[in-house]
Amino acid sequence: SKDTIRINGIDIDVKDLHEEWKRLVEEALKRGDEELAIELLERALKE
């Protein structure tokens, strides 16, 4: 798994994120759902 995830052309540092969150965000991006990916990231970062 990578340490960054690219959303809207912005590389976001996710190395401190739990693997499960990372996977969910990557799944959302694979489906092209950037809005969901951002929402998941925000939730993950609050934890």
Rank of each mutant, 00 (worst) to 15 (best):
S1M: 13
S1T: 13
S1I: 14
S1W: 05
K2Y: 12
K2V: 13
K2T: 12
K2L: 13
D3S: 11
D3L: 01
T4R: 10
T4M: 11
T4I: 14
I5D: 02
R6C: 08
I7W: 02
I7S: 02
N8M: 09
G9W: 05
G9A: 04
I10T: 09
I10R: 13
D11K: 06
D11P: 06
D11W: 06
D11E: 08
I12H: 14
I12F: 15
I12E: 01
I12Y: 15
V14I: 15
V14A: 07
V14T: 06
V14K: 03
K15P: 04
K15E: 07
D16M: 13
D16N: 14
D16A: 13
L17M: 07
L17C: 05
L17H: 01
L17F: 06
H18T: 15
H18R: 11
H18L: 13
H18P: 12
E19C: 10
E19L: 04
E19V: 04
E20D: 15
E20I: 08
E20Q: 08
E20T: 06
W21G: 11
K22S: 07
K22L: 15
K22Y: 08
K22G: 12
K22I: 15
K22R: 15
K22E: 08
R23L: 07
R23Q: 15
R23E: 13
L24W: 06
L24A: 13
L24R: 06
L24F: 04
V25N: 00
V25S: 00
V25G: 00
E26F: 11
E27V: 03
E27Y: 01
E27W: 01
E27L: 06
E27K: 02
A28G: 00
A28F: 04
A28M: 05
L29W: 05
L29D: 00
L29K: 01
L29R: 02
L29A: 04
K30V: 12
R31I: 07
R31V: 11
G32S: 03
G32E: 03
D33M: 10
D33Y: 06
D33E: 10
D33W: 05
E34L: 14
E34D: 11
E35T: 14
E35S: 13
E35C: 15
E35P: 12
L36R: 09
L36P: 00
L36W: 07
A37T: 02
I38V: 11
I38E: 06
I38D: 02
E39W: 03
E39L: 06
E39H: 14
L40Q: 01
L40F: 06
L40Y: 08
E42P: 00
E42H: 08
R43D: 04
R43K: 12
A44D: 00
A44N: 03
A44T: 01
A44H: 06
L45C: 08
L45S: 10
K46M: 09
E47D: 12
E47V: 06
